[in-house]
Amino acid sequence: CAFTHRPCSHPRLEGQEFCIKHILEDKNAPFKQCSYISTKNGKRCPNAAPKPEKKDGVSFCAEH
């Protein structure tokens, strides 16, 4: 993984420079932040999710 703030030993995603944990660092990657919002604390999930086809579409990470 090419994350520069600290060493990361996670494997890169195929065709990308970053792992799934750090892929949002790459603005050109086909990922965006997960659209899930917790009902308990109102916070948005920080994980990466595939970018949807539509610009305003929602997309969820593997956990959600």
Results as ranks from 00 to 15, higher is better:
E14V: 10
H22E: 01
S59C: 11
F3E: 04
P30T: 06
R12S: 10
V58W: 09
L24T: 09
D56H: 13
N47Q: 15
N28H: 14
D26V: 07
K51C: 12
R6I: 14
P46C: 12
C8P: 00
H64D: 03
N28A: 09
G15S: 04
C61N: 02
P50Y: 04
R12P: 07
R6N: 08
L13Q: 06
A62T: 12
K21W: 06
H22V: 00
C45T: 02
N41Y: 03
K40F: 14
P50W: 04
G15M: 05
I37M: 15
C34A: 02
H5M: 15
H5L: 12
P7Y: 07
N41L: 11
I20S: 08
K21F: 15
F31I: 02
E63N: 12
T4V: 02
P52Y: 04
D56V: 10
F18W: 03
E17I: 14
R6F: 15
C19K: 01
I20R: 09
K51W: 06
K51L: 10
V58N: 06
P46L: 11
C45I: 01
T39N: 13
L24E: 04
A2L: 07
T39H: 11
K32C: 07
F3M: 06
F18Q: 01
F18Y: 10
C61P: 02
L24I: 05
C61D: 02
F31C: 08
C45Y: 01
H22A: 00
I20L: 13
S35P: 06
C45F: 01
D26L: 06
C45W: 00
P52H: 08
R12T: 10
H5R: 15
C34T: 01
H5D: 09
K32R: 14
D26A: 11
P52E: 12
F3T: 11
V58M: 14
S35L: 08
L13A: 06
P46N: 15
H10C: 15
Q33Y: 12
N47L: 13
L13G: 02
K51H: 07
D56P: 11
F3Y: 07
P11M: 11
Y36C: 06
N47E: 13
S38H: 10
A62D: 11
T39R: 10
V58P: 10
R44E: 08
R6C: 14
A48L: 07
C1D: 00
L24W: 06
A29G: 09
G15A: 04
C34H: 02
R6W: 09
P46A: 09
D26Q: 06
P50K: 06
I37P: 08
H5Y: 07
N28P: 05
K32T: 06
S38P: 14
K51T: 09
F31W: 09
S9H: 09
A2M: 15
P50G: 05
I37A: 06
H64M: 03
I23N: 02
Q33F: 05
A62C: 14
N47C: 14
K27S: 11
C19F: 00
A49L: 11
H22N: 00
I23K: 07
E14L: 09
N41R: 13
N41V: 14
H10T: 10
K32M: 12
C45G: 02
G42I: 05
C8R: 00
P46R: 14
A62F: 10
T4L: 01
R44P: 12
N41D: 08
H10D: 04
G15N: 08
N47T: 13
Q16T: 07
N47H: 09
S35A: 14
R6G: 12
A49D: 03
G15W: 01
P46W: 14
N41H: 09
E17S: 10
I20K: 06
P7M: 13
C1W: 00
L13V: 09
A29K: 06
P11R: 11
I20M: 14
K43W: 08
L13P: 00
A62M: 10
I20Q: 11
P46G: 14
V58S: 11
K43H: 12
S38T: 10
T39P: 05
R12Y: 00
A62W: 11
H5N: 05
C61Y: 01
R12K: 03
K27P: 11
D26R: 06
K32V: 08
T4G: 02
A48Y: 07
S35N: 09
P52G: 12
S38M: 07
I37V: 13
K27C: 06
S38W: 12
P11H: 04
N28G: 10
K32L: 14
K27M: 04
P52F: 15
S59D: 09
G15F: 02
G42E: 15
Q16F: 08
P7D: 15
T39V: 10
A29R: 07
G42S: 12
C34E: 06
A48R: 07
F18G: 01
F3W: 07
S59T: 14
S9G: 08
P50A: 05
H5K: 11
I20P: 06
A48S: 07
L24Q: 07
C19N: 00
A2H: 04
D56E: 09
P30N: 06
C34Q: 02
C19A: 00
H10Q: 11
P11Q: 14
N28I: 05
A29I: 03
Y36S: 13
K27W: 05
H22G: 00
C8K: 01
Q16R: 11
A2I: 05
P11N: 04
R12L: 04
Q16A: 09
H5C: 09
D56I: 05
C19V: 00
R12E: 01
D26N: 11
G15D: 09
H10K: 09
F31R: 05
K32W: 04
P46H: 07
F31S: 06
H22W: 00
P30V: 04
A49R: 03
H10F: 11
G42W: 04
E14Q: 07
V58F: 12
K21G: 09
D26K: 06
D56W: 03
S59G: 14
K32F: 03
S9T: 06
S35V: 14
R44K: 12
N47F: 15
C61E: 02
K40C: 15
Q33L: 15
I37C: 14
H22S: 01
P52A: 12
A48D: 04
P50C: 10
C45E: 06
N41W: 06
P30F: 03
P7I: 10
C34R: 01
P7H: 08
Q33D: 04
K40Y: 13
F31D: 08
A62N: 10
T39K: 11
P50R: 10
